[in-house]
């Protein structure tokens, strides 16, 4: 017993150090699995308050930029209106079907970015909307320019989303011109580019081709902009192209974003479980 006591007396510092480090490793490991584990409330109310207070001040310096991007988006949306399209179809024997209702599938929750980073290995974006405003985990986040990320953690009034610039983030991207699709993920270095995988060599890809979301997941609607092809490499010993993509979203200056609420999500997921 005396020896044991002597041992503790001698090594208690090392033991304390090792036990605390082990606890850290446990915490880190627990929070690694962004999707499976409800990891500690990353978007916590206290830090949310601090950040939104700070953002409230710094927003004033970016008002002009926000206005510009909103005006641009308004113009784009205006162009989508039926009124601003030239109707090519000539109504001959065409029955206009007024009974078929357009069923709404997506709604959008506007949110302000209160914290953002681009230079970490997994970048998180904090938003000032939470459970009470209808934000849930696993919802997609987009802005006027393209995709932004995915909600990973929610509190009553705030939420945290991992941005495309996270090593855990993957999204299926589709070429707008020919519908071939592959997996897009961030390469971890440059905040303006990502790499696209699983595109077979026979697919005709040119620099500048546009990539949009495939709409296969319940994260994003179809045809949301992702980016354009920046460069491509073809290696003899591989079956797939190595494509670098210029992301259309400027992650350095996110002001306002939309959280995508897919109203058919539960139905699609129940279909998934039926098939399995």
């Amino acid at each position: 017993m005396y020896n044991l006591y002597q041992f503790f007396l001698r090594y208690y510092l090392l033991l304390l150090f090792l036990s605390l480090e082990t606890f850290c490793v446990y915490l880190i490991y627990q929070n690694k699995h962004y999707n499976q584990v409800a990891y500690m409330n990353m978007a916590n109310e206290a830090s949310g308050k601090v950040y939104s207070l700070y953002q409230g001040v710094s927003d004033y310096f970016y008002l002009r930029n926000y206005n510009d991007s909103l005006v641009k988006e308004n113009a784009y949306l205006r162009a989508q209106l039926l009124d601003s399209k030239y109707i090519c179809k000539i109504d001959s024997g065409h029955i206009s079907d007024s009974t078929a209702k357009n069923v709404q599938r997506y709604t959008y929750i506007t949110a302000r970015v209160i914290r953002n980073s681009v230079n970490e290995a997994s970048n998180l974006i904090f938003l000032d909307r939470g459970r009470l405003q209808g934000v849930q985990k696993q919802m997609g986040v987009i802005n006027a320019n393209g995709i932004v990320g995915q909600v990973v953690s929610v509190t009553d009034n705030y939420s945290a989303a991992m941005s495309v610039l996270s090593k855990e983030f993957k999204v299926s991207a589709r070429f707008k011109k020919n519908d071939f699709f592959g997996n897009l993920h961030w390469d971890g270095i440059n905040s303006t580019t990502a790499s696209l995988e699983d595109i077979p060599k026979h697919v005709p890809v040119k620099i500048g081709d546009t990539l949009v979301t495939s709409g296969f997941s319940q994260l994003f609607p179809r045809n949301i902009m992702i980016g354009t092809v920046k460069s491509l490499k073809m290696e003899a010993d591989k079956n797939f192209l190595e494509i670098t993509v210029n992301l259309s979203t400027n992650f350095g200056s996110l002001g306002y974003v939309y959280v995508v609420n897919d109203m058919k999500k539960v139905e699609i997921q129940s279909l998934d479980s039926l098939v399995k």
Binding site: L13, L27, I28, Y39, M40, A46
Partner: peptide, 24 residues
């Protein structure tokens, strides 16, 4: 020193969303 280091690291983690890393 160790306890203060650990807890202040956790505090930083709490704000930066990197639970455990700065604490370690």
């Amino acid at each position: 020193l160790m306890l203060v280091g650990f807890s202040s690291g956790l505090l930083l983690d709490y704000f930066l969303g990197s639970i455990g890393m700065h604490a370690a």
